[in-house]
Amino acid sequence: MTEYKLVVVGAGGVGKSALTIQLIQNHFVDEYDPTIEDSYRKQVVIDGETCLLDILDTAGQEEYSAMRDQYMRTGEGFLCVFAINNTKSFEDIHHYREQIKRVKDSEDVPMVLVGNKCDLPSRTVDTKQAQDLARSYGIPFIETSAKTRQGVDDAFYTLVREIRKHKEKMSKDGKKKKKKSKTKCVIM
């Protein structure tokens, strides 16, 4: 069974824990209790493949930012979460993405942009803004509501699919490099 290491990042209060708990335990946590770091595991079937999701729910508070490099190193894919009623959390996505790329030393890291709290009427981040940002990053965008469960499975499952595509691409690139290195030079 394939294991996928997913990391949920975003500013404090955007609903990272609520999304994760909704996926794992099928219930909505409405009281806000700032996370330092929590880890969850769940076995699911995605596109006919049974897999184990190892999900790291991270601290959004700035005082825990020193811990970010460590979990970013171990993560295979990242859910970059903002709240649709919090423009600052949307603007912060850029910083999370840049930090992930720096730590992973790669421009090509599996990510999904997630606009959470889409059940709320007080939207300050337009869907088109988020779609445009995701398009500019070359990553999928999904709106979710941890409260109603809308888009929750889709967000995590899409990230797994992005990781699969990335692994497939990397193995193809690896095979191309191996083929090239088999060419021999004969000096007579």
Rank of each mutant, 00 (worst) to 15 (best):
62 E>P: 11
10 G>H: 00
33 D>V: 03
62 E>S: 07
38 D>E: 04
53 L>Y: 11
17 S>E: 00
15 G>E: 01
26 N>C: 08
6 L>Q: 02
26 N>K: 12
34 P>V: 05
48 G>W: 05
37 E>N: 03
56 L>I: 15
2 T>S: 14
53 L>G: 10
64 Y>K: 00
24 I>L: 14
12 G>Y: 08
40 Y>A: 01
61 Q>H: 12
33 D>K: 02
51 C>M: 10
21 I>R: 14
39 S>L: 12
51 C>A: 09
21 I>K: 13
23 L>W: 12
19 L>E: 15
39 S>Y: 03
54 D>P: 06
49 E>I: 07
6 L>F: 11
6 L>R: 01
60 G>S: 03
14 V>L: 10
55 I>G: 04
60 G>F: 00
34 P>G: 05
19 L>Q: 14
38 D>L: 01
59 A>H: 02
61 Q>F: 05
7 V>P: 04
15 G>S: 00
58 T>M: 02
34 P>Y: 06
36 I>A: 10
13 G>F: 14
58 T>D: 01
56 L>M: 08
18 A>K: 08
40 Y>H: 06
62 E>R: 06
21 I>S: 15
31 E>W: 09
20 T>R: 02
30 D>F: 10
32 Y>K: 03
11 A>K: 05
41 R>W: 09
5 K>W: 01
35 T>F: 03
44 V>R: 10
28 F>R: 04
8 V>H: 03
43 Q>D: 13
51 C>F: 12
21 I>M: 15
40 Y>V: 04
58 T>S: 09
62 E>I: 07
60 G>I: 00
31 E>Q: 08
29 V>W: 08
33 D>Y: 04
43 Q>L: 08
24 I>F: 11
7 V>E: 05
39 S>N: 09
62 E>F: 05
53 L>A: 11
27 H>W: 09
63 E>R: 07
43 Q>I: 08
13 G>D: 13
29 V>E: 14
5 K>F: 02
19 L>V: 11
40 Y>C: 02
21 I>T: 15
4 Y>W: 09
40 Y>S: 01
2 T>H: 13
20 T>I: 06
29 V>Y: 08
24 I>R: 08
63 E>A: 06
3 E>D: 13
29 V>M: 14
24 I>K: 13
58 T>N: 01
24 I>V: 10
41 R>I: 09
64 Y>C: 03
27 H>A: 15
9 V>D: 04
35 T>N: 01
54 D>E: 14
22 Q>R: 11
59 A>S: 11
26 N>D: 15
14 V>T: 12
28 F>G: 04
11 A>V: 13
45 V>W: 08
4 Y>M: 15
30 D>S: 14
7 V>Y: 06
4 Y>F: 14
22 Q>P: 03
10 G>V: 02
4 Y>R: 14
10 G>E: 01
63 E>M: 06
9 V>F: 04
18 A>V: 06
61 Q>V: 09
55 I>Y: 04
47 D>V: 05
8 V>W: 03
2 T>W: 07
30 D>P: 10
21 I>V: 14
22 Q>T: 07
56 L>C: 09
3 E>N: 07
64 Y>P: 01
15 G>K: 02
13 G>C: 13
20 T>Q: 06
13 G>Q: 12
37 E>F: 02
61 Q>G: 11
10 G>S: 06
12 G>K: 06
35 T>H: 02
28 F>T: 05
59 A>Y: 00
28 F>D: 03
52 L>C: 14
6 L>C: 08
57 D>G: 01
19 L>C: 12
34 P>K: 04
48 G>N: 10
40 Y>M: 04
36 I>S: 04
23 L>N: 15
6 L>N: 01
33 D>T: 02
50 T>C: 09
28 F>L: 06
42 K>I: 09
53 L>E: 08
58 T>G: 03
8 V>Y: 02
14 V>R: 06
